[in-house]
């Protein structure tokens, strides 16, 4: 009975950690996978999402789910503006893009501090909690796990079955060729950056009730998000994000439970260094290679 309870609690912890890593990294990995750009303003976009949700929910009285959706669109629009004005000029210059988005993140963080002050009243965490065998379970985290799974399905549908998905995959494989075949690559990049930003805003809004709302709250997300992206790699957005957050959660959960959250994150960094030593292009590339090999074996 007690081991049952412990196993259940571990599973729950594993699920919440994986969902947290997945949500924190999602927008980042969408932009990286499609455009080969690391958006260092990612944490600030998440912060923006949290602010939009907080303001629309606490001050305008919008129901929380609606506030989350508003956050997605608000940050997506902001992302599109960033792409048009700034990011667009840095395609093909990976390091330049990193530096310029970092500059943007400084402006956003400091700007928010100046406009909204050092903190905001938090959003009350929706849903109650259950307890079983001495461990407690938050209903909201269970919902977040479900939403993560829904997001995976949604992204799969988007890339697989929509016109945008087709064009995006073509652009990702070979931008020159796609352009020659009439794919409007500039529009694909604009939409992708906007989507990535929107997803960052969505995650920020979803995670807002679990966090304090402050101008630099994005910082707590960037370290785990970056590690997830490094381990996931850029070869395939979905397999990268999912594979990496699951693997890293499997590392973080036991260590975090035994030694605390900080050492759990340190373990993530060390694990990521070791993982890139084994697979420099991340899990998604390793999965791709494995599938290639299986395919060639079949054709033989």
């Amino acid at each position: 009975m007690e081991t049952d309870a412990l196993a259940l609690s571990l599973t729950y912890q594993f699920g919440t950690n994986a969902a947290f890593l997945f949500l924190a990294a999602l927008g980042l990995i969408v932009i990286l996978g499609m455009m080969n750009i690391i958006n260092l303003a990612h944490g600030e976009l998440m912060m923006m999402g949290a602010y939009v949700a907080t303001i629309t929910h606490n001050q305008l009285g919008l129901p929380f789910p609606l506030a989350v959706i508003v956050s997605f669109f608000a940050v997506a629009v902001f992302g599109a503006i960033l792409e048009l004005l700034i990011v667009r000029r840095f395609y093909g210059r990976e390091l330049g893009a990193l530096v310029v988005t970092w500059g943007i993140s400084l402006i956003l963080g400091q700007g928010t501090l100046l406009v909204f002050g050092p903190f905001m009243p938090a959003i009350k965490i929706p849903g109650g909690s259950y307890s079983y065998g001495g461990f407690s379970y938050s209903a909201y985290w269970l919902i977040l796990i479900a939403i993560s799974i829904a997001l995976i399905a949604g992204l799969y549908w988007l890339y697989r079955y929509t016109n945008y998905g087709l064009q995006a995959r073509a652009t990702m494989q070979n931008a020159e060729m796609a352009k020659a075949l009439g794919v409007p690559t500039n529009r694909v990049y604009l939409l992708t950056f906007s989507l990535g930003a929107g997803l960052a805003g969505l995650s920020g809004a979803l995670l807002a009730p679990t966090s304090t709302i402050a101008p630099f709250m994005g910082q707590q997300f960037v370290a785990p998000a970056f590690i997830t992206v490094v381990v996931g790699g850029a070869a395939n957005v979905i397999s990268g994000a999912v594979g990496s957050s699951v693997l890293l959660s499997a590392i973080k959960t036991p260590i975090g439970m035994a030694y605390g959250a900080f050492l759990g994150t340190v373990a993530l960094l060390i694990a990521s260094l070791i993982i890139i030593r084994i697979m420099p292009d991340g899990i998604s590339a390793a999965i791709q290679k494995l599938m290639d090999r299986r395919r060639t074996r079949k054709t033989k």
Binding site: L95, F226, V230, A234, V266, S272, I276, R277, P280
Partner: peptide, 20 residues
């Protein structure tokens, strides 16, 4: 360096290290 990682990985891992 000995993993020969992509060039974007180094800046973000260095950042993670300093944040930790």
């Amino acid at each position: 360096f000995y993993s020969r990682v992509r060039e974007w990985i180094i800046p973000i891992l260095t950042l993670v290290l300093t944040l930790l």
